[in-house]
C-alpha cells in the first residue's frame, strides 16, 4: 500500500494536498482497499462550502456506503468531473485520478494538525 510523503492524512482516511492556496482532497489507498470496488461517488458542487469534520460527499462500493469528511473548512473551487463516470479511479489511482475536490481553505494552518505519512501508517496499523 502506498502513502505518499507529500500528503497529509486524517483519521477518517482522507488525504489532503496543499498546492499554492488550494487544498485537494481524496481518500487514501487504505480506504479504497477497505471499501472494495467503488461504483458511485456523490460530490458537492463548485461554490459549495464544506465544514471541518462534516461529510461533504459519499462514496459507494458494491457492498457499502461511506461518507467522506472534510478535513478543513472552505469553499469548493473545483470538483473532479471525471469521477461520476469513472468511480473506479478511486481504486486504481486514489492519489491522482481519484482526487475528489479542491477547496480554498478558510485557515490553511489546520493542515499542520493532520498526520504525515508515517504517523498515518502507524495509525492504520493500530486500527
Amino acid at each position: 500500500m502506498d502513502f505518499p510523503e507529500e500528503l497529509k492524512y486524517t483519521e477518517e482516511h482522507e488525504w489532503v494536498l496543499l498546492e499554492g492556496d488550494l487544498v485537494s482532497i481524496g481518500i487514501s489507498d487504505f480506504a479504497q482497499d477497505q471499501l472494495g470496488d467503488v461504483v458511485f461517488v456523490e460530490l458537492p458542487e463548485a461554490g459549495d462550502r464544506v465544514e471541518i469534520g462534516k461529510p461533504f460527499g459519499v462514496v459507494e462500493s458494491v457492498k457499502a456506503v461511506s461518507d467522506i469528511y472534510a478535513p478543513l473548512a472552505g469553499e469548493v473551487v473545483e470538483v473532479n468531473a471525471d469521477l461520476p463516470d469513472a468511480p473506479e479511479s478511486i481504486n486504481t489511482s486514489p492519489y491522482e485520478d481519484g482526487w475528489m475536490i479542491r477547496i480554498k481553505p478558510d485557515d490553511p494552518a489546520v493542515l499542520d494538525g493532520l498526520m504525515n505519512a508515517a504517523a498515518y501508517q502507524a495509525f492504520i496499523e493500530e486500527e
Partner: peptide, 9 residues
C-alpha cells in the same frame, strides 16, 4: 470469504 480480488472482477 466476501471477496478475494474484488466483487466486480
Amino acid at each position: 470469504p466476501v471477496q478475494y480480488t474484488g466483487v466486480i472482477a
